[in-house]
Design a protein around this nucleic acid. Structure first.
Length: 174
DNA sequence: GCCAACGTTGGC
DNA sequence: GCCAACGTTGGC
């Protein structure tokens, strides 16, 4: 028993939490709900790619964040709106290999795909979205990468403490 | 729509 | 290897 528990806590310790940004007009949480699972393509930043390629593991959880580019149709503030699950290991980002795609990158090839992604699976909408303003004024979240000035990284790690605080803000704690 | 901050590119 | 120019991000 003791052994089993030890192994279990080992696994729990190594589960990671993430935050994925998406422009709601380009791909929203509702799109993900409709699709069920989707490859997280189009990321063209090396640090974000490295998180997907090297650090994400199936079963990791991620907040789905709507950033607010364009913003014509909605008055909503940028917000965390849902939760999804990492559903695969690293796979080639097909959009980098397609000359007709706006994310095409001639440096990538099927034999040597420099852009990698993971599949992401819909879990749920938060009961109550958590806006960037709420994140900013909540104690314990000061170090979140997306709240740092000028931060543009679209995939960022979230600590377990931050995750739990945000879940409670969303009235979504287990 | 604006524009500061950022990451990448390419000339040197 | 430096760094100016460029394109993009994303909050406002």
């Amino acid at each position: 028993m003791f052994l089993l528990n030890t192994r279990y806590s080992f696994l729990v310790t190594f589960m990671k939490y993430w935050l994925l940004k998406s422009d709601a007009e380009a791909y929203s949480i509702d799109d993900l709900k409709r699709d069920g699972t989707t490859p997280w393509t189009g990321v063209r930043n090396y640090q974000a790619r490295n998180y997907m390629r090297d650090e994400m593991k199936p079963g990791d959880l991620a907040f789905f964040y709507h950033s607010n580019m364009g913003g014509s149709s909605t008055d909503a503030r940028p917000s965390i709106v849902g939760i999804c699950e990492i559903a695969s290991g690293p796979i080639a980002d097909e959009t980098a290999l397609d000359p007709k795609d706006s994310h095409y990158d001639p440096k990538s090839s099927p034999a040597n795909p420099i852009w990698m992604c993971v599949e992401v699976k819909y879990k749920k909408h938060l009961k109550k979205p958590v806006s960037i303003d709420e994140l900013r004024k909540t104690k314990g979240l000061e170090k979140m990468v997306i709240l740092q000035k000028g931060s543009r990284l679209s995939i960022t790690p979230v600590t377990e403490k931050e995750w739990k605080i945000i879940e409670s803000l969303a009235s979504d704690a287990k």
